[in-house]
Amino acid sequence: MLKFLVDHARCTQCGLCATDCPARIIELDDYPTIVNPDACIRCQHCLAICPTEAISILGNDPENELPINNAFPSPQQMATLIRGRRSTRQYLDESLPIDVIEDLLTTVHHAPTGVNAQQVLLTVVKNRQSVHTLREAVYTRLVQAIRDGENNDDMRMEVLGWAIKMWTKEGADVLFRGAPHVLIASAPQNCPTPLPDCFISLSYFELLAASAGLGSLWNGMLKWTLDELFPEFRDRLGIPRDHLVGYVMVFGKPAVKYMRTVSRTPGPIRIIDWKEGNGTGNS
Rank of each mutant, 00 (worst) to 15 (best):
P62L: 13
A54P: 07
T52C: 02
Q44L: 15
E53M: 09
E63R: 12
E53A: 08
I55M: 06
A39N: 07
N60C: 14
L66Q: 12
R42D: 14
L58V: 03
I34Y: 06
I34C: 05
I57W: 01
S56K: 04
R42K: 12
N36Q: 15
I34A: 06
S56F: 02
A39G: 04
G59E: 10
H45A: 08
R42Y: 10
D38C: 01
C40L: 13
I57F: 07
P51R: 01
C46D: 08
E65M: 11
I57G: 00
D61A: 01
P51D: 01
E53C: 05
P67D: 10
E63P: 04
P51K: 01
C40M: 11
E63T: 13
I57R: 03
C43V: 06
L58Y: 09
E53D: 09
C50F: 11
N60V: 15
L47G: 01
D61P: 00
N70D: 10
R42C: 11
I41S: 10
N60P: 05
I55W: 02
N36R: 12
C46Y: 07
C50T: 08
G59N: 05
A39H: 10
I68D: 09
V35F: 02
L66H: 10
I68G: 00
I68S: 06
N70Q: 12
N64E: 15
A48R: 10
N70F: 08
S56V: 04
C40R: 03
N64F: 13
E65A: 08
A54H: 02
Q44P: 02
P51Q: 04
C50V: 11
P51M: 07
N36P: 00
D61G: 00
E63A: 13
P51L: 07
P62N: 11
C50D: 05
C43T: 03
A54C: 08
N60A: 13
C50G: 02
C40S: 05
N64L: 14
A39C: 04
E63N: 13
E53R: 06
T52M: 08
G59T: 09
T52Q: 09
N60G: 07
T52D: 10
C40N: 05
C40H: 03
L58R: 02
L66I: 13
A48P: 00
N64W: 15
N36V: 12
L66K: 13
D38G: 00
L66F: 15
A54K: 07
C50N: 08
P51I: 03
V35Q: 03
I68Q: 12
P67T: 09
A48F: 10
I49A: 00
E65H: 03
